[in-house]
């Protein structure tokens, strides 16, 4: 046990004192700041239009949206950046050999590495989120309620889980790859597929399998006037529902989808005003019902997605563990 802490704290201090960590935290901190600045400008604009009366809570939806979007890039990149050379880097430097000739077991090393990474990832996410959260709160001049704090805490927790999924994936690739360059290439490719390719493919597949027959809102001259058009509308809604079911089932291959879902469920309480327009809220449930959901209800909606992320993270860990403990080292 003592050895695992030694490895973990070494890993933590190596990561946290490294350039990579600093750069990532600074870049994403800046992104958060820019997003907040844009909200600030909108608040001022809105206040001028409303004759000086600001309604800051109305902007929380936008702030939440910014937080989720930025995090949906930050967490995977953080996980990849720290995981892609977790094992292969030490193998290339020879430090793995030097460690393995000491009285430690291999599982101690991999446990320590994952724990150290977990701590550093948590630190980075807490810092980046706090920049976003504190900035938003100050900008909007809101006093967060106990519920706000709990929801934001949960958001950070699941962001850490999300980053760990990517860390695990990258660390696994780093364990099986002969060289770091190899694991970097494969993990960046996987990230691009999950982040950009799958959403596009998903909507292409959905659109091409389910064709939407009419577009009722374009025909604005006689909306829902008679029975026929009411039936048409029902059919239209049904087709849209089926399309989005297909889209979602394809997207659910990617961890990104599950994270976005969880984050939306947790932060949907703020989906009033401007946020609603950008679509914070579940597809399956009515928006109104979701907005009123308590924290426990939000969690129960998000539960399947949380499970998927947790299980995939554990699987990457087990896979890395099995490969690493059996691997020949040269």
């Amino acid at each position: 046990m003592a050895n695992m802490f030694t490895v973990a704290s070494k890993e933590f201090s190596d990561i946290v004192r490294g350039k990579r960590f600093l750069i990532l935290v600074i870049v994403f901190g800046l992104m958060m700041t820019v997003a907040i600045a844009s909200i600030y400008l909108r608040v001022i604009q809105a206040a001028q239009q409303a004759g000086g009366v600001a309604m800051p809570r109305g902007f929380l939806g936008l702030a939440a949206y910014n937080l989720i979007t930025t995090m949906s890039y930050f967490a995977p990149i953080l996980g990849l950046a720290l995981g892609c050379d977790a094992i292969s880097g030490e193998r290339e430097k020879g430090t793995l050999k030097t460690t393995l000739v000491q009285p430690v077991f291999r599982d101690t090393i991999i446990n320590g590495k994952f724990s150290g990474a977990f701590l550093s990832i948590s630190l980075a996410i807490v810092i980046a989120s706090l920049v976003g959260i504190v900035g938003s709160v100050l900008t909007l001049g809101i006093t967060p309620t106990g519920e706000d704090v709990t929801r934001l805490f949960l958001f950070m927790l699941f962001s850490i889980l999300f980053a760990m999924t990517y860390y695990g994936l990258a660390a696994f690739l780093s364990t099986v790859s002969k060289r770091t360059t190899q694991s970097v290439i494969i993990s960046v490719m996987l990230w691009a597929v999950f982040t950009f390719v799958i959403p596009i493919v998903a909507s292409l597949v959905a659109v091409s399998t389910i064709s939407v027959s009419i577009r009722p809102f374009q025909n604005a001259t006689r909306p829902f006037k008679n029975a026929t058009s009411r039936q048409e509308l029902q059919r239209y809604v049904e087709e849209l529902r089926r399309q989005s079911a297909i889209t979602e089932s394809i997207q659910s291959i990617a961890p990104n989808y599950h994270f976005t879902r969880i984050a939306q469920y947790i932060l949907q309480a703020y989906a009033g005003g401007i946020g609603a327009r950008i679509g914070i809220g579940g597809a399956g449930q009515g928006l109104e019902g979701l907005r009123a959901a308590s924290i426990l209800q939000s969690l129960s909606f998000a539960w399947p997605n949380i499970l998927v992320l947790t299980i995939s993270t554990i699987l990457t860990f087990i896979a890395s563990y099995m490969v690493f403990t059996r691997q020949e080292i040269r």
Binding site: N3, T6, V7, K10, D14, R17, G18, K93, G94, T95, K97, T98, T99, L100, V101, Q102, P103, V104, R330
Partner: peptide, 22 residues
Amino acid sequence: PEGFGFYDHLTAPQNLDYIAAL
């Protein structure tokens, strides 16, 4: 061992301190 290495960003005593801890 053959092909051993140390952490470049640490000094010799710091490297050895980690090994001593292990």
